[in-house]
Design a protein around this nucleic acid. Structure first.
Lengths: 340, 340
DNA sequence: GTATCATGTGGTAACGGTTCCAGTTTTGTA
DNA sequence: TACAAAACTGGAACCGTTACCACATGATAC
């Protein structure tokens, strides 16, 4: 790579000192109109672009945030990434992307790297482990925002998520109102708030209608892997199988659906299905799925907003919790249970 | 953010000079075993991590690559991003992510930023415009790798893509062999190599079997937007509509499928369909789609390999073209044309 | 016993910016 | 017209690291 022009080259070319150039660059301090013009001309002529690394080194706050997502192959996170990148751009922030693949070890490694790069903040979907590492980051006063999920007990970081309990309650209620009494639930792991809250909402809906909860119908599964298919199969093999299921683990939706398709389970005749996370493919599936749509753009907006504000120290110290409402979309995968 | 330990702190703490610390850090030059141990201990104790910005400033080659993708909401690019990040990690490279949304203006802006950040290289899916900007990057001797698509005429950059012509020929041949004679083609824009090559393959298959090409059945559409639906509708409205279609614009597959679903076109009875790009959702759709599967992991592997090698100057100057074979997957969306 | 050599070691100039500070102008006001 | 205040300017220290160089050593070869 050829060596690019430095600020000193510009200064020399414009016949001023580096201080002046720096000042026109950052609009920090006074500069005479004529000199400003000269500098601008020199910059243009030399094609000068200030070097991010150098700038960062001399006490400027970093303009980069880390985005640590579970798994980009999952459309939910992919679209989240898309929106985060867009929001970041509009605030002139760069995004360094990393993925955990739901692996605590990879997550730890990523956290370490993020620290090295001295990013200005991190937006992430924690695996649920590595509590102490996240804590360390936060204690270093690096802005951390959890999005979509959080870690129970780690309450010094900001969290942006949907109203999980309410959404689960709505989904469950919808099925109950249609006459279902045995409703399966496949939530995320119970060491993440997502899992806990969705179970809570499910239970509330049941309780409100006086339906007794059957433990065998609530089967939390890790975000990663194929276990969604297994627990689904197990539920269907029960003496009294569920007539409906809420798949409340965003990451496992696909796996569960595949299992149902392979198992020749007719939807909604044999089983009513509600899934968390709507995406463009949902409507291409037969039948179109009743879904809880997470407003991904809102999640992205608030996450970026939060880190950005923290980086600029524009926010009072206490942790913030932003919850956005999710939309319940009734399509054709839910119906009344088969009688008899 | 509290100030972190610097290399000088470590040096002081270990009772050596900074040079020694730097040497054990990078394994560049001799260090006595005892001192090395002391330094390591000091590092451990102080929780010291070298600062990436400072390191980069003093002539170390950057350890960051830019990934400039079209659109993360598209599963193809999302999975590509996923693999690229993974491959990069295994080479200790960081990835700065940007998206163009297929907008040349955003692309230009992104290229500019990438230059500032002085990333060590760029992997990208060009929109087809901004030729001169890409050229500038390449001329600055910054490693640039186009993946999936390239720009016709810009042949100083490396390209990693699938065997587009062959794949299109296979897909078309498959339909021809089943008796189809009027086969629609929806390729990408003709200022990208992807579009051109896929048309070429389509034409070759036709020619080999002595079928005359009908211009009205080849309808290139931009990657972005909804035009895929329009051209599909137009084709179906012809006096002699096609009995089969090859959707060879990866980005428009979803749009076209949605249009067909809404238009109550039965697949494969009314229309046989082959799509470019297979993804996990394809098999959940009724009927499962016959598809050309792009080996995304291979695309990622070679792209990262190439930039990495270029960054380390491990490659002779000339541009490299890597083409990987795509897999043709016959499923249930193709059949013989309806007779009469 | 001296010349040669590999091995350790520390000092210090870069790298490319920002920022503080002390000067020098210009402007404003009495 | 004098003098304080404001506007402008450039010098130089600094950010945290690497790389080069000069200088000790102690060992080996003649």
């Amino acid at each position: 790579m050829k060596k690019a022009a430095t600020i000193r080259d510009v200064a020399a070319h414009a016949g001023v000192s580096v201080s002046v150039v720096s000042r026109v660059l950052n609009d920090t301090g006074p500069v005479a109109p004529t000199k400003r013009a000269q500098v601008l001309a020199a910059i243009e002529q030399l094609g000068y672009r200030p070097k991010a690394a150098a700038r960062q080194l001399s006490q400027d706050r970093p303009d980069t945030i880390g985005l640590l997502l579970a798994d980009l192959a999952n459309p939910f996170f992919a679209r989240l990434a898309d929106r985060v990148v867009a929001e970041a751009r509009s605030r002139e922030l760069q995004v360094v992307l990393m993925t955990t693949q739901e692996d605590p070890h990879l997550e730890e490694q990523a956290l370490r790297t993020l620290l090295d790069r001295s990013v200005g903040g991190v937006i992430g979907t924690p695996t649920g482990h590595n509590v102490e590492h996240w804590e360390k980051l936060a204690n270093l006063e690096m802005p951390v925002v959890f999005v979509d999920r959080a870690i129970e007990g780690l309450d010094q970081v900001d969290v942006v998520s949907i109203e999980n309990a309410e959404s689960a309650a709505t989904a469950t209620g919808h099925l109950l109102d249609r006459g279902h009494r045995r409703i399966g639930l496949v939530p995320g792991p119970l060491d993440t708030t997502t899992g806990i809250e969705r179970v809570r909402g499910y239970e509330r809906a049941l309780a409100e209608r006086g339906v007794v909860r059957d433990d065998r119908l609530v089967r939390p599964v890790p975000f990663r892997g194929e276990s969604g298919a297994d627990v689904m199969a197990q539920m269907l093999a029960l003496d009294e199988p569920p007539t409906a299921v809420v798949v409340a683990n965003t990451a496992q939706v696909r796996v569960v659906l595949r299992m149902l398709a392979q198992g020749r389970v007719s939807i909604p005749e044999d089983l009513s299905v509600v899934v968390f996370d709507d995406n463009p493919w949902t409507e291409l599936i037969r039948p179109p799925l009743t879904a809880v749509r997470q407003p991904i753009d809102m999640l992205a907006l608030h996450s970026v907003d939060l880190v950005h504000a923290r980086m600029r120290q524009k926010l009072p110290p206490g942790p913030r919790q932003v919850r956005v409402a999710a939309e319940f979309l009734e399509r054709s995968s839910t119906a009344e249970p088969r009688t008899g």
